[in-house]
Write a protein that binds this DNA or RNA. Structure first.
Lengths: 217, 217
DNA sequence: TAGATTGTTAATCGATTAACAATC
DNA sequence: TAGATTGTTAATCGATTAACAATC
């Protein structure tokens, strides 16, 4: 069968590749600012400390074509990456749990460059309800249901205490959320078609601390 | 040659394994609370949605022994994991950059269960210097050098703007820091013996957004 | 004892790296 | 043209999964 569609294929793009793509984007923005029009994979590889062949393979998933002996057009490459990752669209999200981490994510400016737009936050804490972080209002948790009825938000960011994570996740799914960015330690049991991306601080701490202890022998 | 030392070996433990270990720990704490004394790998695998063989292999890195037909002693297993990961020690850290993300990490209670103790924060913003988040004081950036002379802190948490990340990282290394937890998007170029753990929010966003778009076909 | 589970060794799977032909 | 770089196909490497013997 022939390859169709905007992007190269439907063969699932490996997660390690996807995780590397924003790194290229960040790097290319700096390259662009320096006025470099064409950039080659070996050059990118050198600056980013990774294999040039891998750079070629990674960039290929966006469908962009490079020119032998020249490299890739910086602008085209940036555009292709942003388009492929969805960073140039507006991806609306709800956030549940307006504690320390939740508030930080609300205030975190960089989300905007990812096209992530947090349109409302929810919490059960009376003291937080009615307040806001930046332009994002913190609403009563129960409002989640009525608000999701009127809007078509697909992404939910979960920054609640671990103990209520599963219940809240289920509520989010019932509200039509298709993807959950889970910052809790809870393992979520949800329908298979729901995309769950877990970002566990403790996983990173584990690697860091263990490697540190290894190095101290 | 014979295997020596407290832990099973010096064959490098795979990063995916290390990343999974805190998940077991979180799960086992809940199991312990339920009064379950012995827990088997197939049981853990079922609850955590992963392969039981993988559970066995993962847990083996801590050096703990299970009993056929019985499983592992819950308490011993928790202790072995905490010990292996260094979560039951006090791992002192500096944090540089007291913006939104930095402040959130300072306030984030869960770090304590990882044995991570942020003992001071540094920033160049006059308005922040002298204030504190929780019990952590925000000091003038230049104090980093004198303070690191008196203390023996090995971990630096980097939550500065991207533009100064490399410079600050170099300063940290000059101050005797051995491991850097990098929350910026910058690629750090540091001596090979320095452990760098990069936690990039945009990598997670990339995977989430791309998978979401894939699922919408 | 019988049988479930550990723990090790082998097979598979997937990602990275290498090789090389195509091309500008 | 000559040569650097892309892009594809093959080889390697490493992690996951399967198979099975040991054991309680």
């Amino acid at each position: 069968m022939n390859e169709t569609g905007k992007y190269k294929m439907n063969r699932k793009v490996p997660e390690p590749t996807l995780k590397r793509l924003p790194g290229y984007l960040y790097y290319l923005d700096k390259v662009k600012e320096q006025g470099i029009i064409n950039i080659s994979a070996p050059m990118i590889g050198k600056d980013l400390k990774c294999d040039p062949t891998q750079v070629v393979k990674d960039l290929a998933v966006t469908g962009i074509k490079g020119k032998p002996r020249v490299g890739y057009n910086t602008y085209e490459l940036i555009h292709a990456l942003e388009d492929y990752l969805g960073f140039n669209r507006t991806n609306e999200a709800f956030i549940v749990g307006a504690g320390n981490l939740g508030s930080a994510l609300m205030a975190y400016q960089e989300h905007q460059s990812l096209g992530l737009k947090i349109i409302a936050a929810f919490d059960v804490d009376e003291k937080k309800i009615g307040t806001h972080v930046g332009r994002i209002h913190i609403l009563e948790y129960n409002k989640l249901f009525s608000l999701s009825n009127r809007l078509d938000v697909k992404i939910g960011i979960l920054t609640t205490p671990n103990s209520v994570a599963q219940d809240v996740a289920e509520d989010l799914v019932n509200c039509g959320i298709k993807a959950i960015w889970n910052f809790t330690s809870a393992i979520l049991h949800l329908p298979d078609d729901i995309i769950v991306q877990s970002t566990s601080m403790s996983s990173y701490a584990a690697v860091l601390l263990r490697r540190l202890n290894d190095s101290e022998k």
